[in-house]
Structures are given as structure tokens and as C-alpha cells.
């Protein structure tokens, strides 16, 4: 903007050289800091910036990266570094400026109704299931000596008939259950 305007007011012939120098400098001014661009990059739309300036702008508007001058879409990969002859070992300015570490966001603590509800990480949510004391159950029921159960009733008594009946009922229930398991 000030590129053409800076030299308009000093028209005296003595400052002729000065004029052209200023004009030339103005042509290569960064559009953000208004200084002669250093670590210059140019956008696809032709606008010149210092890479540090442009980088800061791109960081400011991460979600909507546009050219400051013409609002064209712009990104790190869509700008071209400019290498002048004076620089003995040109290096891509975009590599020079280390990209800043990305921001990290951690969850706030102790908010909401389920403070510890989450999977993995902080171990807030765990569960397990199984058959309690599995291998010992067999020993408990098979090798239980001396557990003081009453002796079997005398053969022919009504209690013996009742127990026989119950035993058959449970046997059939068991058979039906296994059959149902097989066909289901």
C-alpha cells in the first residue's frame, strides 16, 4: 500500500537515486510487517511475506487460512520460498522456523456425573467376570468328606419313595435342559 506512496513527496532531482532505492525496497515489502521481506515467501496469488510473519498469521487463524491481501486460500505447502543470489547457502525458510509444538488439551478433572467413566488410560473403568473359584469348586463338591449329611432313608419307607420321585424329576429336568441346549 505504501509502496508507491513513500516516494511521491520527495521529487527533488538530488534525491533521484534515493527515490529508486526506496521504490525498489517498497516493491519487496512484506505485506504484514511492511519491512523488506526477509526469509521471503510468495503465495500462489503473488503476495510477498516474510515467512515468520506469514507463519504467525497462519497460526492465528488455523481453521481459516487465507491470504492477508486477497483472502485466497493459502497454506504452508502453497507458498514458494524465494532465494536471492546473495545468500551463499539457501535454506528453505519454511524449514528454518521450527513449527511450534501443537497445543495439548487435557480433560478437566472431576466434572460431570460420571467422573471416572472412560476407557483405558487412567484406569477409571474396569470390569471382569467369571465363575467364582472355578478349579476349586470340583474339589469342594467331589471330595467333601465328613460333611455330616443325614444317612439315606430306609428302603420301602414313604420318604424313600419321595426322594426317588424327586430324583427322577430333576433327572428329567436336566435331560430336557441339555436337549434344549443342543437344539437351540
Amino acid at each position: 500500500m505504501s509502496a508507491e506512496t513513500t516516494s511521491q513527496n520527495n521529487n527533488s532531482p538530488s534525491s533521484e537515486d534515493n527515490n529508486t532505492a526506496e521504490e525498489a525496497a517498497g516493491t519487496y515489502e512484506c505485506n504484514i510487517c511492511l519491512e523488506t521481506a526477509n526469509d521471503a515467501v510468495v503465495s500462489m496469488c503473488g503476495h510477498l511475506f516474510c515467512w515468520p510473519c506469514l507463519h504467525q498469521w497462519l497460526e492465528t487463524r488455523r481453521s481459516r487460512q487465507t491470504c492477508p491481501v486477497c483472502k485466497a486460500g493459502i497454506s504452508k505447502d502453497k507458498v514458494i520460498p524465494i532465494y536471492g543470489r546473495g545468500n551463499p547457502n539457501p535454506q528453505d525458510p519454511r524449514e528454518k522456523l521450527p513449527p511450534r509444538p501443537p497445543g495439548q488439551r487435557s480433560e478437566p478433572e472431576g466434572t460431570g456425573a460420571f467422573p471416572n467413566f472412560g476407557f483405558g488410560g487412567d484406569g477409571g473403568f474396569q470390569f471382569s467376570f467369571g465363575i467364582g473359584a472355578f478349579p476349586f469348586g470340583i474339589f469342594a463338591s467331589t471330595f467333601n468328606f465328613n460333611d455330616g449329611r443325614p444317612a439315606a432313608p430306609a428302603p420301602g419307607s414313604p420318604q424313600e419313595a419321595e426322594e426317588q420321585f424327586l430324583s427322577k424329576v430333576f433327572l428329567w429336568v436336566g435331560i430336557i435342559f441339555i436337549f434344549w441346549l443342543l437344539i437351540a
Partner: peptide, 18 residues
């Protein structure tokens, strides 16, 4: 610093050629 530098430049331009 960059902000002050730029404001100086803008002020110069505005004064010279408003």
C-alpha cells in the same frame, strides 16, 4: 517490538500522504 515498528511505519505513511 514488531508492533511498534509497524505502527511507526504506518504513522509515517499517514503523515506523508494522508
Amino acid at each position: 517490538a514488531s508492533m511498534e515498528k509497524r505502527l511507526q511505519k504506518e504513522l509515517q505513511a499517514m503523515t506523508k500522504d494522508p
